[in-house]
């Protein structure tokens, strides 16, 4: 579904990614792991067109998307849950969802499905997003992206700083999207969560994917984690 080939990107003169290769298939969860500052967020931003891709290609269903202006990328069906959630804080829950719906002209039916997934949001539609609890904010960030009915969903550390019950809810949500056939790309630091939801793990080091392994049967004390994530 999503094919990333030899992608280089960075900030001005500073190159961060030196040729990333990664695939995300429909109905699979591809987990990106790596140390702080490895370039995980940079990779997702480059895929979204928010940073220029200076070399390599990103294809969605075979069609190149790395030359598109950023606002065209979500319209092709890529949903994005940024690190730190990046909600439109002063806007209400309903308005945040509306922004998501507008991207691909989805209507009330999609909105109701998203609210069915996160009933707590339905009770707070008129509340400013900034006043939600951390867990509710993450639900809204995911819900906003699901309003696009995305074929590919990029999640950047969605469980960061959340309590165990919220982490479990997000895991369930990811498993459900996988079952629905969404291609999920998940940046995750916790080994346990990664092993629980991922089909494949990609370890990013030095701006490259150092290794890609199947998650099934991998032990939590596998050497890859020590080598690339530092746990």
């Amino acid at each position: 579904m999503l094919e990333i080939r030899g992608v280089r990107a960075g900030y001005g003169a500073v190159a961060v990614l030196h040729g990333i290769d990664l695939d995300a298939a429909a109905g699979q969860v591809s987990c990106i792991m790596g140390r702080n500052g490895a370039g995980k967020t940079t990779l997702l931003r480059a895929v979204m067109g928010l940073l220029p891709v200076t070399a390599g290609s990103v294809r969605l269903g075979g069609a190149p998307i790395h030359h598109l202006p950023a606002h065209e990328v979500p319209r092709r069906g890529i949903g994005y849950v940024p690190q730190g959630r990046r909600l439109f804080g002063p806007l209400t829950v309903a308005e945040n969802l509306e922004i998501g719906l507008m991207a691909r002209r989805r209507g009330a039916a999609v909105r109701d499905r998203v609210l069915g997934l996160f009933p707590r949001l339905a009770e707070r539609l008129g509340q400013a997003a900034a006043t939600l609890s951390g867990g509710e904010q993450q639900m809204l960030a995911i819900g906003r992206a699901l309003c696009l009915e995305p074929a590919v969903l990029l999640l950047d550390e969605p469980t960061e700083g959340l309590q165990p019950s919220m982490v479990a809810l997000i895991r369930d949500t990811v498993a459900r999207l996988r079952a629905e056939g969404v291609a999920v790309v998940l940046v995750e630091q916790r080994v346990e969560t990664a092993l629980a939801v991922a089909d494949r793990l990609a370890f990013v080091t030095g701006g490259r994917v150092a290794e890609t392994v199947a998650a099934r049967g991998l032990a939590a004390d596998a050497p890859q984690f020590a080598a690339h994530v530092g746990v």
Binding site: A70, F88, G89, L91, E95, E98, M102
Partner: peptide, 23 residues
């Protein structure tokens, strides 16, 4: 909707673009 788009762009231009808004 035009107003909503303006307010979202005001809050966070990059995230607005990531949701299909031509800022």
């Amino acid at each position: 909707r035009a107003g909503l788009v303006m307010r979202a762009t005001q809050v966070d231009r990059e995230t607005a673009r990531a949701f299909g808004i031509d800022t």
